[in-house]
C-alpha cells in the first residue's frame, strides 16, 4: 500500500496535497487498527464480567448490547479466593520494594555521581555487570536461603530479593550528573556536609527522577509472577498475579464470568491510577530511555 503510493506518485504528478491526504488516511487507519487491537480485549473482558451466564459469553459474534447486566460475578470472586488479601499483599510488596529501592538507588546514585573515592570505577562496573544477572538466574539459591531463614510463605521473601537495583542506581546516577555542580559547591562553602547536601539540596531537586524510578519499580513488581510462585505456597500470602491464576484454575476450569470479574477488579484500579497520573507515567517511562 505504502509502496504503491510512492511509486505512482511521480508518474501521475499527484499534488503533494493529495499525496499527503492519502498518507494521513493510511496513518490513521494503521493507528486505529492498532488501538482497537489493544482496547478490544479489555472491553471484552469487562463485558464478560458483567454478563449473567457463560453461554451468553461464548456466543459468536459477541453482542455489544448486554441485556441483563449483573454484578453477581464479582461476589463469586470473593467467595472463591481471598481477593482483598491478594490486593493488600500486592500493595505491601510492590510498595515496600519501591520505597527500599528509592533509598538504596538514590544514595548509591549520589555517591557514584558526586563523590570521589578509590575503586569507584570498579564498583560501578560491578553494578553494571549485575544487570546481566537477573533474578531468574539466581532464583534457586534465593529460594534456599529464604527457606533456611524461614521466610518462605511470608511477604519478606518477595520484598527482600529485589532491593538492590542496578537499573535504578544507573538511572539516578545519570540524574545527579545532570544537576549543576555549583549547587553542592555553594552548599559546601556554606559548611554543609554530604548528608545535608544530599537531603537538603539534591533530593528536593530529584522529585521527577525519583517518581520515574518509583513508577517503573512499582509496576514491575506489582506484576511479577515468578517470585511469588516460587516463594509462596499459602493462598492467604499470595499476590494478585498468582491469585488470578489460582482463580482461573490450571486449565480454565472456573466459570468464565467469575474469572473475568477477577481480572476486571485487578485491572480497573490500575486503569484509574493510569488515567489520573497519565502525564507523569508517560513522562517517566519515556525518559527512562533518554537517561540511559
Amino acid at each position: 500500500m505504502t509502496t504503491s503510493t510512492i511509486k505512482t506518485a511521480p508518474r501521475r504528478r499527484a499534488t503533494p496535497r493529495l499525496q499527503s491526504i492519502g498518507l494521513r488516511v493510511l496513518t490513521f487507519a494503521i493507528l486505529i487498527v492498532a488501538a482497537f487491537a489493544i482496547v478490544a480485549p479489555f472491553a471484552w473482558i469487562f463485558r464478560a464480567a458483567l454478563s449473567p451466564s457463560d453461554a451468553e459469553l461464548y456466543r459468536l459474534p459477541p453482542s455489544l448490547v448486554v441485556n441483563d447486566l449483573t454484578t453477581a460475578n464479582f461476589g463469586k470472586v470473593f467467595e472463591q479466593v481471598p481477593f482483598l488479601r491478594f490486593v493488600l499483599n500486592s500493595i505491601v510488596v510492590a510498595g515496600s520494594i519501591t520505597a527500599a529501592q528509592l533509598i538504596t538507588c538514590s544514595t548509591a546514585g549520589y555517591a557514584f555521581a558526586r563523590l570521589e573515592f578509590r575503586g569507584k570505577n570498579v564498583l560501578f562496573a560491578i553494578v553494571i555487570g549485575s544487570l546481566m544477572i537477573p533474578l531468574q538466574v539466581t532464583i534457586v539459591p534465593l529460594f534456599l536461603v529464604m527457606a533456611k531463614l524461614g521466610l518462605t510463605n511470608t511477604l519478606w521473601a518477595l520484598i527482600l530479593p529485589p532491593i538492590f537495583s542496578a537499573f535504578g542506581i544507573f538511572l539516578l546516577r545519570q540524574h545527579f550528573f545532570s544537576l549543576p555542580k555549583d549547587l553542592d559547591e555553594a552548599a559546601r562553602i556554606d559548611g554543609a556536609g554530604h548528608a545535608r547536601i544530599f537531603f537538603q539540596v539534591m533530593l528536593p531537586l530529584s522529585g521527577p527522577a525519583l517518581a520515574t524510578l518509583g513508577i517503573i519499580t512499582f509496576t514491575y513488581w506489582w506484576n511479577d509472577l515468578l517470585l511469588p510462585l516460587v516463594m509462596i505456597n499459602d493462598t492467604q500470602t499470595q499476590t494478585l498475579p498468582v491469585g488470578l491464576v489460582l482463580l482461573a484454575g490450571r486449565f480454565s476450569s472456573g466459570s468464565l464470568g467469575t474469572i473475568a470479574a477477577g481480572i476486571t477488579m485487578a485491572i480497573i484500579p490500575v486503569l484509574i491510577v493510569f488515567i489520573i497520573a497519565q502525564r507523569h507515567i508517560v513522562q517517566s517511562i519515556a525518559s527512562s530511555g533518554l537517561k540511559l
Partner: peptide
C-alpha cells in the same frame, strides 16, 4: 499513546 501504553502496566498474568 495511552491505549498503546496501558497493557504495559497491567500484570502479565491478567
Amino acid at each position: 499513546r495511552l491505549s498503546f501504553l496501558f497493557p504495559f502496566v497491567v500484570s502479565s498474568s491478567a
